[in-house]
Amino acid sequence: MLLTQNVLDIINENIAIIAPLLIIQLVLMITALVSLFRAETTNGPKWMWALIILFINTIGPIAYFIFGRSHES
């Protein structure tokens, strides 16, 4: 409890510094999701990629963009 309080304090004090980092991660995630929904087919099931993008920070969207998109068009 004390520990999370501490972390929250740090985040609150430094929000201006950390904000760009969070925004970039959010934009990355949203672009990956938009791309996923618009794609007709992907390598592997779509719901799996959705989970990967949502729950694996930063690496998830990158992995989807590199490996998830199928190039058969």
Partner: peptide, 10 residues
């Protein structure tokens, strides 16, 4: 391919 979005961000 959204490369113009994600490569700069990454």
């Amino acid at each position: 391919n959204y490369k113009w979005v994600w490569v700069p961000l990454v």
